[in-house]
Every structure is written in structure tokens, then in C-alpha cells.
Design a protein around this nucleic acid. Structure first.
Lengths: 232, 232
DNA sequence: CAGTGGTCTAGACCACAGC
DNA sequence: CTGTGGTCTAGACCACTGC
């Protein structure tokens, strides 16, 4: 058989769990027992168990055993990037403003800086087939080497803006998603004349020491965005 | 040192990547080289590399080597459940309707059933401190043992409704998030008198063979919901 | 105390890359 | 052909659990 032994172990245990033979909290056969059952060495058995643990099927308690885990029914993975979503792709961007500003209380608090710290503010409009679909504002802590060259920021996504001055590994990210009615400025920029709502996505980036590096707020016309999340 | 050798290997390579010594696409020292560098056996080195691969730092090409991976800057994890979000928790639910219905074209297509297949439709209202905050509709394929007991479904989340008749392991889930203006029915149920938009979350559940098991549509008052996603 | 999982070794054979 | 990663073994010692 060309199927690795550890895969066979994984599948056998998954089957026991999926079929209900093993329920959450139940103990799995001990590693030594599995060694005998599958005529495998302990390292091979442990490799299979590690895969099951990674996939959320089991957990282990040292000195006691391996147990079936209560699955997490609330977890979803979403791939978010300002320029593309499930129903639309941004094909043009327009730079409205690049400025150095001083933060107000809320912004200073959000980025954990004093009100005297200079920030870069970038405002952009996103278009699809000639129609404005989103209004985008970014606030970045100024750093040496920060790209203020218009060409470099006009089409960049948020992590790309920071990638040139901050190591992108260890970068922590956060998004907040909510619905909002457009104010007059949004209605003007996004050509909204009726009751069309906005979907707003706030992005916050932290360096590997959890220091906030920037805040982005992207307001999408509600008819041009759907976000999709899947499990695993 | 009580830190496991494989952890030391992981940290050493992470540091090389975070500091920029190793860039995406670069080859990592071969496993045999790492064995010598860390005076460790190959299995120990491989355990460290497996962790780095799982965390998205590296990938391997058999016969060639291990390489630094381009990090995925778009991936977020969101914990979604109808009853609670970043700014609100549902503390009361009201069952509006439990019915057997025949699907229209759109629904039959979405659930991959014929129009003659019976579906269960459940309509609920969610409240927080006495105020209606969300309107919730679920469509379920009828199965033996399906809970139509009101007590059992009134407060259940979507996966919980299915958990009694379907194994929850291997369950695949999908959510679609978008903003929408409320229609008159929504305005009535959710006490909306002004331009408040809705945030709509559609949930679709599939069994382990990718057969759709149910569709849920939850429409939240925009001022009572924010969804949060983080990386890793 | 025996049994459990956590770590680790020093070998082995294989399929595959690239010269 | 050598070097690479992928799989696997048969031991070992440790810390912890529960009797």
C-alpha cells in the first residue's frame, strides 16, 4: 500500500469520530495500543495523532491520554483584501489625498500614540468599470523609508504599504466589519442617491511586538461587496 | 535548557526570516545541515520544520529543499455565531414560525434539491435588553429526528440545530456577509424608523460529502453588530 | 507503582532533483 | 551519481497521572 501508515491511522480515527463510535471527551486508544493495532512504531503513531490534533479532532493530556475534542462550530476563515471580494474586483484607484496630520483623541487612542505624533493619512477612491465602489482612508505611523511616492501607494493594499518598512512576518492583523448609512461626503464620492448602505471594513495592523502600525477604513457601496468565510 | 530542541530550531529560523536574513523563496539549510548545526537528530529537525510549515513560514519541495514562503497577508479568522458578536449578545429569542415549505427556484438551487422536496423553515427574532436586534430565517432539509420541538430550536445556533441529526465532525460551513437596506417587513420587526442599514449574514452548512444541509439568513440591525477577524 | 504522553536518537530505505 | 526531503523503526529517558 502506498498510503503512508500515519495517514491510515488518521483516517481510521477520523472515521471512528465521524461515525459516532467516538464522542467528544472520549479517550482514544493509547499510543502503545495504536502501535500494536497498526503494527507501527510510536513515532509514526504520534505523527498521525499530531495531524488529528492540528485539524481539531483531538487533544492530549500528558500522563492521561488523547481525547476527542469538541469541535469549534464558530470558526471561519475569510480572505480579505481591499481590492477584491466575492462579487467584485477593483480595477482602478484614484488617490484623493496624501497628508501629514495630527491625530484626534480617538485616532491617537486607537493607534496608541500621543496627539503630537505625526501620522500619514492616505485617502483613495476605488473603481470598478468606471463606477466608484469604495472610499478608503489609511492612517500610518510615519517611518523612515515609508513610501510617500504616489505611484507606490496608489494601488497598494494595506499590508503592501507597510511591507517596505516593516517585516511582514510576525505582522498581526485585525479587521472589524459593520454596516453603516453613508454620510453626505460618502454619498458624494460613491454616487449614492438612494438608501444604499455601506459595508465598512476597518483594518488594523500591528508589528510583532503588538504595537499598532496603521489603521485602514474602507467603506464599500453595499451593492459591490460580499465577504465570504469558510471553515477549516 | 528545558526548551525543546525543536522549539529552538523553530525560533532560530523564525528569527532569520523576521530579521530579513532569509527572504521569501530563499532556501533554508538542508535538514542534514540543521542536524549538525543543532546537534540534533533528523526527526527532531523535521519536527521543527513541520511546525514552521504549519505556521506558514516555509514549504518544502521533495528532492530540492525547504524554502521560505510568501506570507498570506489576506487571511483572517472570524468566530461567528448568531447570538453573539464583538459589540452585542442576544439575551432573548422569539420563535415567529416553524413550517414545512416547498422551496422556490432560488432556494431549491441553493440547497441543491428539487422544488418538490419539503424544507423546514424557522423564523426567529433576536433581542438584547428588550430591543429587537436581528431577524433570523433558517431552511433545513427535513431528516428523521430533526428537532421540531420549539424548546429545542428557539435558542439554538445553526450548527446546534443540525448537530442532533448530523455528525458535526466533517461539517463544512460557509458564511456570506453583506450590507442591505431593510425592507418594510424588516423595518417592522426590527423597529427601524430611519436610515439604519442591516448587516446580513448568510450561513450554509454542508455534510461531509458536500451536500447542503441548510441555509440560514440572519439580518442584524447595523447598530447592534460588528464582526471581528484576526490573523492566525 | 505502572501507564500515559513528550522528547529524542541513530540508524534505515525510498522517490525525486540536478548534474 | 550525490544530495534532497518523505517515511519509518526500535529503542531510550523524562514528567506526569492515578492507583
Amino acid at each position: 500500500m502506498s498510503i503512508p501508515v500515519y495517514t491510515q491511522i488518521v483516517e481510521a480515527i477520523k472515521e471512528k469520530i465521524n461515525s459516532g463510535q467516538l464522542k467528544p471527551g472520549d479517550a482514544i486508544d493509547s499510543e502503545n495500543t495504536l502501535c500494536k493495532t497498526f503494527s507501527a512504531s510510536r513515532m509514526t503513531v504520534r505523527k498521525g495523532l499530531a495531524i488529528l490534533a492540528r485539524e481539531g479532532y483531538i487533544y492530549s493530556i500528558p500522563g492521561k491520554g488523547n481525547f476527542v475534542k469538541q469541535p469549534d462550530l464558530t470558526k471561519y476563515i475569510i480572505n480579505y483584501d481591499e481590492m477584491s471580494n466575492t462579487i467584485n474586483i477593483v480595477d482602478k484607484t484614484q488617490l484623493l489625498e496624501v497628508n501629514i496630520i495630527m491625530p484626534d483623541d480617538e485616532l491617537a487612542n486607537s493607534l496608541q500614540v500621543t496627539k503630537r505624533k505625526n501620522l500619514i493619512r492616505i485617502k483613495r477612491l476605488f473603481f470598478t468599470e468606471g463606477n466608484p465602489v469604495a472610499y478608503d482612508v489609511k492612517y500610518l505611523l510615519y517611518q523612515r523609508g515609508m513610501p510617500i511616492v504616489e505611484k507606490e501607494i496608489q494601488h497598494a493594499t494595506f499590508p503592501e504599504m507597510l511591507a517596505k518598512t516593516t517585516p511582514i512576518y510576525g505582522l498581526k492583523k485585525e479587521i472589524i466589519i459593520y454596516a453603516q448609512a453613508p454620510d453626505d461626503e460618502m454619498k458624494y464620492y460613491l454616487n449614492i442617491y438612494d438608501e444604499l448602505p455601506l459595508l465598512v471594513v476597518e483594518q488594523k495592523l500591528y508589528d510583532k511586538d503588538n504595537k499598532p502600525m496603521g489603521l485602514g477604513i474602507t467603506s464599500y457601496r453595499g451593492d459591490y461587496i460580499k465577504l465570504k468565510g469558510i471553515n477549516q
